[in-house]
Each structure stands twice: as structure tokens, then as C-alpha cells.
Write a protein that binds this DNA or RNA. Structure first.
Length: 397
DNA sequence: CTTAGGG
DNA sequence: CCCTAAG
């Protein structure tokens, strides 16, 4: 089964390379073209993908297969949870776990999609969500106290978002994460490979020809990318993950009309890590400081505009509140969802949501005269900005 | 330019 | 995600 695919991949790779050379630069592709360029030219990446695809005969094969068999996924997660953490500096630890787990989840997703027949995959996913996460987060939130902390005191307790200091703490640990995952080169390579393919095609305007049921997801690269932040030429944060429904959607879209291609161009799937980062950012800087959050936590991602962050937050609020209402039903849905949201994350979202409810018409009609009796904008306006406005760079020559 | 809101 | 209005 796996072996059947490999030739395809190899062929695809060379195929893709040719395409790139032939078409050189497609209009409107320049910036992104360089991305692909880097991907293909970068010796490291090249090596990875080639290695991943070709050298499956080595120990990679073992890992590769193991991974696809999902057993490795569990083992991996377990290792991180137990032994891996110890060797990692405490601060970034939780972040690492999150990031890694994010990738892990994605992979489980992938595996799930590929071997849809395997009940085991689903079980694994559930397990990871229900068991792994709570345990990991238990370290962040030792008790329910965090909840009180947030609702009672204006300033969020530092302990609340243990992963808040991600900006700095992440770098070391993420590297460790990458190193940790060396054994996954098989899968990684495959994913990189696919991703290049996907990325390349997406630049051309439309959906890449569906080559396989492989869903490229690589969090590791993202981690690396984000750790070094600021200026990383390797801008291939490629958590492309096309869900079944989505690829359907894409197909339908391109089928419908080619002019519709300019709208809904490339929507990047939000990874769990991103969502967590977003939540962290909101916890730190407050709701509405999208630019700040973007610059501080999403500096490395050229996409993800502040508006995107806001939109995502809006959606997160929606889903989280939906889950609040009838937990039973939605919970079930979430598990079947392509992108299940870990409960701890949902919890945090809800906590933040209670602090600053999304800009919603709270007061349908406030008399402009006596409305500003108290100057503080009730809730959302300015939660508490430690280092607020004057932080932003002002080009006052 | 940034944010809010609707599509 | 995209677009627009308002500060």
C-alpha cells in the first residue's frame, strides 16, 4: 500500500520541478514563487524530501511504517510527555508539547484520512484528545483556580497562560521538537513533498490536481520557522492539510467557475498551535489588539493578517459557545470534526470570552448622553494593557 | 492604517 | 477569507 505510493511521489516531485522550471514565474506568484524556490533549492529541504521519499529502506522505513501504523504516534506522544519534557527547559516545555502535539494530531488526522477503515485511528485521536491534552494542560492549570483568577482579577495571572511566554521560550524547545522528530523523516519528507506540490499549485490560482489522499501537514517546519521568527526565508509554514470536505469544496469551486478562483484564494488551515498562539496573544494583549498580536506572535507568518486573527477569534468564540450550550451534542460533533478542538483550548477560549465578550451589541440602545458615565468601555474595550499603545513603533523621524 | 462588522 | 465603513 505504502510502497505503491512512493513511485508516484517521486514522479510527482520531478514532475513538479519541471513545471516550476517551465512556468518560471506566473504572474502574481513572485513572492510565493520564491517560497517554492527555496523549498526546492534549499539543500536541507531537498535532502529531507528526497531522503524521506527515497531512503525508506533504512531505519526511516521502520519509523515511516510505524508512524502510518499510528502506533508510533502514540509512542511519540508518550515520549514527549514523559521523558522528552525532562530534557527540555521548563518554560518552553508546555509550548513544545502543544506544538508537537498539534503536529501529532494533524498526523493522526492524516493517518485517519488515509486509512479511514482503521477504527484504531479514530480511537487514537480520541485518546489523544481526551487523555493527552488534559494531562498536559494540567501543568498549566493545576487547579480550577485559574478560572477564578481570570474572572476575578483584571490582570490575567501569569500562570494562567503558561505558554504565554512562547515568544522566547519556544525557540529552544521547538528545535528540540524538530530533533525529536527526526525519526519521522519518512513522513515528513513525504509531507514536504506533497506540500511543495500543493503550494505550487495553489499559487497558480486553483487547486492542485488531487494526486493522492495524502494530506500534507508539517508542524515541525512551522515550529522552526516560528522560532527564528522575524526573517526566515523559509516561509513554508505548510500546514496545508486539506480535509476531505475541503478538497471537495475546492474541486467544486474550480468546477463552478474559473473566475471564482480569485475569491477564496488560498485559505490556510489553522493549526492547533496557531489557535493556541492566538489565544495566548489575546490573553496577553487583550481582544482587539490584533496588530500587536500579529506582530508579536505571528511575525513569521506573512499571511495571517490581523484581520485574519480577528476572524479566527470570532469563529473560535462561536464554536466554543456552541459547545457551551449543548455540550453533549456538539462535543460529539467536534470529535467527528476534521479539526477537533482540544478541550483545554476551548476552556481558555471560553474564559477569555467571558472576560471580553466579542464586540457584540451588548447595549442595544445607549443614550449617547449618559452612556459614558464611566469611561471604561465596560468590558472589551481595554481589558488591561500592560504595555499598551506607546509600544508600537512610531516613525517619528 | 487599524478595527468592527457583514458577506 | 474578502470587502467596506468608521475611528
Amino acid at each position: 500500500m505504502k510502497t505503491d505510493r512512493k513511485p508516484h511521489l517521486i514522479k510527482k516531485l520531478s514532475d513538479m520541478k519541471r513545471q516550476r522550471v517551465d512556468e518560471s514565474i506566473v504572474p502574481g506568484l513572485e513572492d510565493e514563487a520564491t517560497e517554492v524556490e527555496h523549498l526546492l533549492a534549499e539543500p536541507k529541504s531537498e535532502h529531507v524530501s528526497v531522503d524521506g521519499v527515497l531512503c525508506l529502506g533504512k531505519e526511516n522505513l521502520e519509523k515511516h511504517l510505524k508512524m502510518e501504523d499510528f502506533s508510533c504516534a502514540f509512542d511519540y506522544g508518550w515520549k514527549i510527555n514523559c521523558g522528552g519534557l525532562d530534557s527540555i527547559h521548563g518554560q518552553g516545555g508546555d509550548d513544545l508539547k502543544l506544538e508537537v502535539l498539534d503536529g501529532l494530531l494533524d498526523e493522526v488526522d492524516e493517518v485517519d484520512d488515509i486509512h479511514a477503515a482503521h477504527d484504531l485511528s479514530g480511537a487514537c485521536e480520541d485518546f489523544l484528545l481526551d487523555i493527552e491534552f488534559p494531562e498536559k494542560f494540567a501543568e498549566l492549570e493545576p487547579c480550577e483556580g485559574s478560572n477564578l483568577h481570570n474572572s476575578s482579577s483584571e490582570s490575567h495571572s501569569p500562570g494562567f497562560s503558561g505558554s504565554s511566554n512562547s515568544a522566547g521560550g519556544i525557540s529552544e524547545s521547538s528545535i528540540a521538537a524538530v530533533q525529536e522528530s527526526n525519526g519521522r523523516n519518512g513522513v515528513l519528507g513525504k509531507m514536504v513533498n506533497c506540500d511543495v506540490h500543493q503550494t505550487f499549485w495553489s499559487k497558480c490560482g486553483c487547486q492542485a490536481p488531487v494526486m493522492d489522499t495524502i494530506h500534507p501537514t508539517i508542524e515541525n517546519v512551522q515550529d522552526l520557522d516560528q522560532s527564528d521568527d522575524d526573517e526566515k526565508p523559509l516561509e513554508l509554514e505548510s500546514d496545508y492539510e486539506l480535509s476531505a470536505s475541503e478538497s471537495e469544496d475546492e474541486l467544486e469551486k474550480s468546477k463552478r467557475s474559473k473566475t471564482a478562483c480569485d475569491r477564496r484564494k488560498h485559505q490556510r488551515m489553522w493549526t492547533l498551535a496557531e489557535v493556541i498562539k492566538l489565544v495566548d496573544g489575546i490573553a496577553q494583549y487583550g481582544v482587539g489588539r490584533w496588530t500587536d498580536i500579529k506582530r508579536l506572535l505571528f511575525a513569521s507568518s506573512a499571511y495571517r493578517t490581523p484581520v485574519d486573527l480577528r476572524d479566527k477569534w470570532r469563529n473560535l468564540l462561536r464554536s466554543s459557545s456552541a459547545l457551551k450550550h449543548n455540550r453533549r451534542e456538539v462535543d460529539n460533533d467536534l470529535k467527528h470534526a476534521v479539526r477537533p478542538l482540544p478541550k483545554p483550548v476551548v476552556r481558555r477560549i471560553r474564559e477569555l470570552a467571558t472576560i471580553h465578550p466579542y464586540p457584540r451589541v451588548r447595549s442595544p440602545k445607549i443614550s449617547p448622553v449618559d452612556a459614558p458615565s464611566s469611561k471604561h468601555p465596560t468590558t472589551k474595550g481595554a481589558p488591561v494593557y500592560p504595555h499598551a499603545r506607546n509600544l508600537r513603533r512610531k516613525k517619528c523621524s
